[in-house]
C-alpha cells in the first residue's frame, strides 16, 4: 500500500487550494497518480460539484461514498472526461494525471480514456463475441501488431479477471450470453486491455448478487498492485473491504477524505459520522 501521509503545508500545490475549502482528513498524498484541484461541475444552471480537491495515489483503491446526488459519480466522470458527453455539463478546475493536464491542449480525450479506464454500474459488454469485447480497445488503439499479440492480450486480460478458465472454450460466444457477474468481469478485462493507469468504477457491484460481488471485490484488491482504482459505492461495507482511503461527498462537496479504517472508526466530520452511522442519506 502506498504511503498516505498528510501533505506538508509548504507543498507547492497547497497554495492553489481555495481558502473556503475545509476538507477534513488527508486529501493529498506524495507523488499522486492523479491530482484534482478546485474542480466544480455545473449541469446547465445547477452546480452539482463544488471546488473539490483531492489526490489519487498509485496502487490504492479510493472509495467514494455519499448519498445519491452527492456528486460522487459526477466527480468520477470528471476523471476521464466522460462529462464531455453531456451537452450542458461545464467542468472547471484542474485535473492532472502524472502532471499532464487532462483538459490541456495537448491532451486528447481518446488518449486520456486509454489511460483512465472506466467500469460502469450495469455490465455493458458490446453485443459481440467475448474475444471481440476485449480486443476492441487494443484494435482501435493499434496496441497489437498481429493476431498472435492480440490473442495474447485477450488471454492475459481475461486471465487477470479470472474469466479465462470459465470462457476459454467459447471466446466466440456473445459477451451478453454470460452471467451478470461474468459480464462485469468481462467489462473490467476490456478496460485492462487498453493498458490504463487508473480504473474508475461506478458502483460496479450494484447489479450483482453477493457471490459475484465478492469476486469483483477480490479482483479489485488484486488489481491494486498495478493500477490506481477509484470506486463509487453505496455500500459502506464494500468501501471498508476494498479501499485504503475513503472520500465522503455531501451535496456536491467533499467533506472528508481519510484512510478507510480511520474514517469509519473515527470520522473527523459530523456529516461523515451521521452518514456512516445511518443517520443521514
Amino acid at each position: 500500500m502506498a504511503a498516505v501521509t498528510p501533505q506538508s503545508e509548504d507543498h507547492d500545490k497547497a497554495t492553489t487550494m481555495p481558502s473556503e475549502t475545509e476538507v477534513v482528513g488527508t486529501p493529498f498524498v506524495d507523488t499522486p497518480c492523479m491530482r484534482v484541484r478546485d474542480v466544480s461541475v455545473r449541469y446547465g444552471g445547477t452546480a452539482v460539484l463544488h471546488n473539490v480537491s483531492l489526490d489519487i495515489a498509485h496502487h490504492e483503491a479510493l472509495a467514494l461514498i455519499g448519498a445519491s446526488g452527492s456528486g460522487k459519480s459526477t466527480f468520477l466522470r470528471c476523471l476521464n472526461r466522460m462529462n464531455d458527453t453531456i451537452d450542458d455539463a461545464r467542468v472547471s478546475g484542474e485535473i492532472r494525471i502524472d502532471d499532464d493536464d487532462i483538459h490541456g491542449r495537448d491532451m486528447d480525450v481518446v488518449a486520456l480514456r486509454a489511460r483512465v479506464g472506466m467500469v460502469f454500474q450495469k455490465p455493458n459488454p458490446f453485443p459481440r463475441s467475448i474475444y471481440d469485447n476485449v480486443a476492441y480497445g487494443p484494435r482501435i488503439h493499434g496496441l497489437a501488431g498481429n493476431r498472435a499479440e492480440l490473442d495474447d492480450i485477450v488471454h492475459q486480460c481475461l486471465d487477470r479477471v479470472g474469466l479465462l478458465a470459465e470462457v476459454k472454450d467459447r471466446l466466440d460466444a456473445s459477451g451478453t450470453s454470460l452471467s451478470d457477474g461474468q459480464q462485469q468481469r468481462l467489462c473490467i478485462a476490456r478496460t485492462l486491455a487498453v493498458g490504463p493507469e487508473v480504473i474508475l468504477m461506478d458502483e460496479p457491484c450494484s447489479a450483482l448478487d453477493p457471490i459475484a460481488t465478492a469476486r469483483i471485490e477480490d479482483l479489485i484488491d488484486a488489481l491494486r498492485e498495478r493500477y490506481a482504482i477509484v470506486i463509487v459505492t453505496h455500500s459502506m461495507q464494500q468501501a471498508a473491504r476494498v479501499s485504503q482511503r475513503t472520500a465522503y461527498f455531501h451535496k456536491g462537496q467533499l467533506i472528508e477524505v481519510d484512510e478507510t479504517d480511520r474514517l469509519f472508526t473515527n470520522p473527523g466530520h459530523r456529516l461523515t459520522e451521521d452518514y456512516i452511522t445511518g443517520r443521514l442519506g
Binding site: 458527453t85 480514456r113 486509454a114 472506466m118 458490446f126 476492441y136 482501435i140 478496460t191
Partner: peptide, 27 residues
C-alpha cells in the same frame, strides 16, 4: 440505442465516429 453502449465505447477511448459507426449504427 442504450446510452450504456455509447459510454462503454467512449470509455475505452473510441472516438465519436468510431463509437457511432462501430456500435451505435449496427445496433
Amino acid at each position: 440505442v442504450p446510452a450504456t453502449l455509447r459510454d462503454a465505447a467512449l470509455a475505452l477511448g473510441a472516438s465519436r465516429v468510431q463509437t457511432v459507426f462501430g456500435h451505435v449504427l449496427p445496433q
